[in-house]
Design a protein around this nucleic acid. Structure first.
Lengths: 195, 195
DNA sequence: TCAATAATGTTATGTTATAACATTATATTT
DNA sequence: AAATATAATGTTATAACATAACATTATTGA
């Protein structure tokens, strides 16, 4: 009877997003869209996010205090962007004690600075970043039906944007790219009910 | 003495934006970036915008009422996105009489519906569209120093976005693409003052 | 002219975000 | 361990952005 060596455990975040390597005609893509719109073991997403947050904070010498951690956890409760005032309500419910806007906005600012969350400008809301720490410029696919949003970092888009900016002599520094539409699930339902 | 036929007058909006035809490796580009960031005869932009607005309204059977026209004119006062409350103040000053939020927001909604203006989500503000009526999906290059924004419609970006959405099985309907950085002018000044 | 529709006026309120200053907790130095 | 500096949080107040709901007036079209 032969024993195979135990397979090395997948780092939790390797489950949460996929990296498509570049090949002919296909730029590299990193995205969590496989997970964001479908049934999945979301606890793994949460754990991965919190673990990565701790790593990023350690690396940057920043403190993931209880209120910051609580806000991040709430943001990671699902894959839907959440607004600051919804966070305030949830935190108030959790704490038993009234939480005020500056408390939440400070936590949000901290998490934004570290790249642990992103702001979805078109919704005035916030979503966790599945791959913080790794340089990427973002694009969000936001479903108008279920509210879920997936993040994609696609070299092709970044280079197209860079080319457009360069053509205009514009020096790009940051970007907000948000696509509104229907996720695979919701699109399926929409086309089914419209014969 | 020979008389040359008079040159046909340029339609005013042909001055306000440029169209780069597609050729090998270069997708078609429509943009007002040449004008937006530089000294120019802005009256021509304003006139072109108002003329196009009248055309679009006629074509769509919509009424460009005085308050709608006033709001559009104010938005076209320059190439910087302007917020609803700044519009309210300017309108109040113009009218002598207090203008209230719903008045302005209704005009904004009307102009948005017709595609005569766009909303810059990351700034909660509004900017005139240089090429309404012609189908285009938008990208804005917003200067963080002078506040000017140019609009670009580049086939390359649209196709890259479409490919990314398709890869995720996402059905895209609308988009908000906003690049923040420095326009040519402001970038020049920034690099000059930092030796 | 009448009726229907579209646009505007008006009051009130909802939602998102930040300024300013006081207090408390943590880290650093001695 | 005490003193100091720095970072984080608490608290009050308000700024900035946006819409709901209903009354009134203008325009269109029969």
């Amino acid at each position: 009877m032969s024993l195979r060596p135990p397979r090395r455990a997948l780092a939790p975040w390797n489950y949460c997003y996929t990296i498509t390597p570049p090949f002919a005609g296909r730029p590299q893509v990193i995205t969590n869209s496989k997970v964001a719109y479908h049934e999945h073991d979301h606890a793994r997403c949460e754990h991965a996010a919190m673990a990565q947050a701790r790593n990023v904070c350690r690396a940057r010498g920043a403190r993931l205090t209880p209120s910051r951690e609580a806000v991040l956890q709430l943001i990671w409760q699902n894959h839907k962007p959440i607004g600051a005032y919804a966070l305030i309500e949830k935190l108030t419910a959790l704490n038993g004690k009234r939480v005020l806007p500056p408390t939440v906005y400070r936590a949000i600012d901290f998490l934004l600075d570290l790249g642990l969350i992103h702001r979805i400008a078109s919704l005035n809301s916030f979503i966790g970043c599945p791959f913080p720490g790794s340089a990427h410029s973002d694009l969000f696919l936001v479903c108008r039906a279920c509210g879920s949003a997936a993040e994609c970092s696609a070299e092709g888009i970044n280079s197209a944007i860079a080319a457009t900016a360069a053509r205009a002599g514009f020096s790009a520094e940051s970007q907000s790219v948000e696509i509104l539409g229907l996720c695979p699930q919701c699109n399926l339902q929409a086309t089914e009910s419209t014969p």
